[in-house]
Design a protein around this nucleic acid. Sequence first.
DNA 1: TTTTATCGACAGACAGTCGGTCTAATGAAG
DNA 2: CTTCATTAGACCGACTGTCTGTCGATAAAA
Lengths: 218, 218
Amino acid sequence: MRKEAIERRNEILDAADELFGQKGFDGTSTNEILEKVGIARGTLYYHFKSKEDIMDALIDRYNTQILGAANGIATDKSIPVHERIVRVVMALNVSGGNSKEIIDHIHKPQNALMHQKIQKVIINGLPPILTEIIREGIEQELFSTPYPYECMEMIVAYTNTVFDDDMVDLTDDERAARIPAFIFNVERLLGVESGSLMYMMKMFDGGNGGGGHGNDGG
Amino acid sequence: MRKEAIERRNEILDAADELFGQKGFDGTSTNEILEKVGIARGTLYYHFKSKEDIMDALIDRYNTQILGAANGIATDKSIPVHERIVRVVMALNVSGGNSKEIIDHIHKPQNALMHQKIQKVIINGLPPILTEIIREGIEQELFSTPYPYECMEMIVAYTNTVFDDDMVDLTDDERAARIPAFIFNVERLLGVESGSLMYMMKMFDGGNGGGGHGNDGG
DNA sequence: TTTTATCGACAGACAGTCGGTCTAATGAAG
DNA sequence: CTTCATTAGACCGACTGTCTGTCGATAAAA
């Protein structure tokens, strides 16, 4: 019945996480949250100052998870530079990583505000991580750009927008067709020879399960 | 007192437009709207089926205005190809065009859903318009890319994200520093020689009034 | 005893509904 | 031409149910 504050907080966050994911932020009432946890109204507001405060705390969790995962990949020097970049970006947008579930969660129509807040974290948090990889690649003379940061910013902005089910309605085929174009553009941005990153196609296919977000194409 | 339905509808939309711009969608109550128009509750719901319905109608208006303006510039063959592109993009993001006011309007923290809906219109509606310009530029051998559409999609996604006050917190100086990098990257994407688009810097400066979204930097 | 966690009744605000009213136009009867 | 009945569209405002956030009381730990 009575619990440590942190424990209760997490119970509330877990419940909210699930409910927001199912019904969206606006579609979930505080009553539903506290009923799910099995606490009274006052308790909820003892731990959180508002409903939005719950969402912000949830986003903090996501932040840690998403950027932590990204950082983990980014600093793993056993993975070749090329591959690291794709993996970091893919972890968010295409493949079936941990953070992918979060992102999918967020991509419900009712979650506009949460979506925006997560996007903000990604667009501000991911480029610095990726830029470090690029610098490494520049040192190894794999890439060549005077603006590694802005380069990454552009790539992240793109993938977060276009490979976002809410923003651009693409069939699986259309999405697949975007990938060579995307790789081509990335090659140009990073100043590498055309075709030299095309081998990454297979990573998208593999991570994607042959289709995209929905069921896989037969 | 008694008016044509279309007229009333527009009165309501005008009021909602202003109020949403000042206080955001969530921050504006239907009472405020109907008081501003000077009508009763029932009247509001006679003309619109819900509050969100009002927002959607408002967005339809924006669509027409934004994409209409973009199209007007895009098809004006008296403007050189290079300049047309910048102008179309700038009309949304940087300069003080008509649609800029709408965009600024939308960039209030409380307007996440409206923001998202407008972004969706832009990311889906603008690249086709811009792609036509690019094709013209390719014919004139100004540009060279096998993926004009995806190129434009990337540029639009970028400007809509990074030059968006809500998404990336940039000082006026930081924003100004992004511009040469942005132009450089666009040059690479469009396959033109480095520096050949740099003259466009002045367009950003001019349209921007020397600063950015806030008061101009001294 | 003091602090920390919990409770649940309550207030205030809001979106959307519903039965009813008002008005202008139409048209038929006087 | 006038008068009265009818109708449909525009409008009204009280009301309902729901929701968020507050507060004083209370129980359990420290």
